[in-house]
């Protein structure tokens, strides 16, 4: 018997898992290079959420010194970590989009199937004539 209370109390995990699978699915199933990057972003965001939610302490406040020794703070470390990860994610997205722009210029398309077709054509051109 599924313990619904248990399941619901971990709702953040369900959100994260849903997002993660959605992102991975998009990456695998979509042929459009931009959409793949969107999928990658959704995937990464799920991990960001994971870090952020695990550091939340029930009843805790933002980790800024208040001077009151009884204050409960949330764990600031994962937030800082994920800030770094977000920056990395932004950089990856920017680089990925830049590549897509260049691919569009070079191949004239950003659909994976079309690109593969062009690449195969190139491949058979350079095949040795033995």
């Amino acid at each position: 018997m599924i313990d619904f209370a248990q399941v619901l109390s971990h709702y953040n995990y369900w959100v994260i898992i849903t997002l993660m699978m959605t992102g991975l699915y998009i990456i695998v199933a979509r042929g459009n290079l931009i959409k793949k990057i969107v999928g990658l972003n959704i995937f990464q965001v799920s991990v960001f959420l994971f870090y952020i939610t695990i550091s939340k302490v029930a009843g805790g406040t933002a980790p800024i010194l208040t001077g009151d020794p009884d204050t409960v703070y949330s764990n600031p470390l994962p937030h800082v970590l994920i800030l770094t990860a977000i920056v990395v994610g932004v950089a990856t997205t920017a680089l990925g989009l830049a590549l897509v722009v260049r691919i569009k210029e070079a191949f004239g398309t950003i659909e994976e199937d079309d690109i593969l077709e062009i690449e195969h054509a190139l491949e058979s051109e350079t095949e040795p004539q033995a």
Binding site: L33, L95, L99, V100, F107
Partner: peptide
Amino acid sequence: ALTSAYTYLM
């Protein structure tokens, strides 16, 4: 090289 870099990035 562009598409291979893209795949690698993904």
